[in-house]
């Protein structure tokens, strides 16, 4: 299972359409395999990011706020979108690998002071 997370620093970015960095990780048997890859986008664009998600053949996307149209487009393309997640992306990756992440989750670490941008 390939997972794509939209990030800003160490956290999940608050907006899908304004994301300029993504992390791609492979998960197998409840574990994250290897070292996640980082991709920097040329410019923030929900359309181009959707294109990248399909090109990378990601089956799960973890993000913050996403507009309905993009959510439906990705869902229609059989990509599972876990949106409105707040917190550190590493925590999100661990949770999704353990099948314990749901849309709207506010993760431990989201309220720690050192996580402030």
């Amino acid at each position: 299972m390939k997972i794509l997370v939209t990030v800003t620093g160490d956290d999940i970015s608050s907006r899908f359409d304004l994301t300029s960095e993504v992390i791609i990780a492979e998960c197998d048997g409840g574990q994250i395999k290897g070292r996640p890859r980082t991709i920097l986008l040329g410019r923030p664009s929900a359309e181009e990011l959707s294109g990248l998600i399909l090109k990378e053949d990601a089956s799960v996307v973890i993000c913050g706020a996403v507009e309905e149209s993009h959510y439906r487009y990705l869902s229609w393309k059989n990509v599972k979108v876990l949106d409105s997640i707040i917190g550190p992306y590493r925590e999100a990756l661990l949770k999704v690998a353990g099948d314990a992440l749901s849309p709207g989750d506010i993760l431990p670490g989201a309220s720690e002071k050192d996580s402030a941008a």
Binding site: D11, S14, I86, I106, S111
Partner: peptide
């Protein structure tokens, strides 16, 4: 959301 970062909750385009 008490204790959570404001920008993560407001989800605005201001930081752009």
């Amino acid at each position: 959301v008490i204790g959570v970062r404001g920008d993560a909750v407001l989800r605005s385009n201001l930081n752009q």
